[in-house]
Simulated assay, not measured.
Amino acid sequence: MSSKKREIDLHHLWQEQGTGGPAQEPLGRSECVRLRRTEDVYAHACHITAWQQLYDQLRPGAFQGELDEVWLKGLQFFRERTSHALHQSCMVWPGAFWFGIPFATQAQGYIGRRQIDTESIAVRPGGREFELSTPDDYGILGLVVDRGLLQEQLEFQGQAQTLCLLEEHTVLHLDAAHKQRLCMYIDEALEVAAKAPASMGTPAVGKQLSHELLLVLLAALQGAQTVDLDCSVTSLRKRQIVSRAREYVLDNPSDHVTVLDLCQRLHVSQRTLQNCFLEVIGRSPMNYLKAVRLNAVHRELGSPYSTFNTVQDAAMAWGFWHMGQFSRDYLTHFGARPSHTLAERARLSTAW
C-alpha cells in the first residue's frame, strides 16, 4: 500500500504506468457482479472498478449513491444513481471506450461543455480525463468495451470509420429505437445479475451476453450522428471559466484561493465571474469555492492515502482557519462530522 500511496493524488487523476485494462484488474477484484449502496460521495466515486474518478458534491445534504456493475471478458457495464449535483473528473481504464447513456426521463447533464440530451450518448476513450456535470437525482447507464474487441467487430461489420467518430466526438446522436434497445439490454442484464450473480461467471452466459450487447451497440453506432454545438460562444466561454476556476483551486490548495484571486487569474470582473457561476452551476463563486474545498478535505479525511491524520491539519491545508465554523459547514454539506469521516477511514479504504 505504501508504494501506491506515493502515487495517489487525491485531487487530480493520475495516469497508470503500463497499459492497464480489464485483464489486469487494477483494483484486484475478481468477482463479476458488484452492487453498491453508499452514503458518502468519496466512497461512491471509488467504487467503479478500474476507473479513476473525483466527485465534488455541490449541494449540501446527506449523499446517496447506487452502483450496479458487471464485468465480462473485455466488457464492463453499470447503472449509477446519485442524489446530489456533482462535478466529476473521470478517466476510463486505458485501452477501452466508454458509452454513457442518461436515463430517458433524466434532467440534462454535460460532458465538458457539451450537453447530453435525451437523444444522445456520451463517448470517451480510455486513459483520457474528461469532466461531467450532473444535476440532482441523476441516473446513467454505462457500457465500457475493450478497444481491440470493439475495433475488431467494427471492421468485421464494415464500420471501421466509426472508430474515428468515437475518438473525435464526445456526444453522439442515436436513433431513438436503437438507443432504447441498448438501454433495455443493459437494464435487463443488470436485473438478472442482481438476482443471480453467479450466472454471470458462467462462461457460456458471459459469452452470450457480451456478444448480444456488442451486437446491439454496433447496430446503434451504425446510424450514429455527430451533434452540433448548440450553445452560443458566450455560453461556452462561461463553462470554460468555471472549469478553469475549479482546476486552479485544486492546483493551489495552500493559497486559499478567493473570488478576487480567480478574477485576477482568469482576467474577468467579479460581476462576470458571478454571472458565469450562476448560469453554469446555479451557485455563486463563493459558495462553489467553499464546496470544492470542503470536498477536498472530505477526500483527505476519508482516504487511506492521505498524508493528514487530524481534522485540523486537513482543514487548514485547504484554508479553513476557524475550526468551529468549518465543522458546522462540513456537517451541513455532508451530513456527518469531519471527525466521523476520519474515524471511518479504515472502512472506506475498502473502496480502493
Rank of each mutant, 00 (worst) to 15 (best):
I8R: 13
I8G: 01
L13C: 06
L13Q: 04
W14C: 04
G20V: 03
G28R: 06
E31K: 11
R34H: 12
L35V: 10
Y55Q: 01
Q57R: 06
R79C: 04
E80K: 13
V92F: 11
W93Q: 12
F99V: 03
F99C: 03
I111L: 11
R113M: 14
A122N: 05
P125F: 02
G126E: 05
E129D: 12
S133G: 09
T134M: 09
T134W: 02
P135Q: 07
D136M: 01
D136Y: 05
G139N: 09
E152W: 09
L154H: 08
A160C: 07
L163N: 04
T170M: 12
L174S: 08
L174P: 07
A177Q: 14
Q180W: 10
Q180K: 13
R181E: 13
I186C: 04
E191C: 09
V192E: 14
M200T: 03
K207W: 00
L209Q: 04
L213N: 01
L218E: 01
D228I: 13
L229R: 12
D230G: 13
S232P: 08
R239F: 08
I241P: 02
E247L: 01
S254H: 07
S254T: 11
L260A: 10
L262W: 07
H267M: 03
S269D: 10
R271Q: 10
C276Y: 00
V280C: 00
M286G: 02
N287D: 10
Y288D: 03
L294A: 02
N295G: 01
H298S: 06
F308Y: 14
V311A: 05
A314H: 05
E344W: 03
W352F: 11
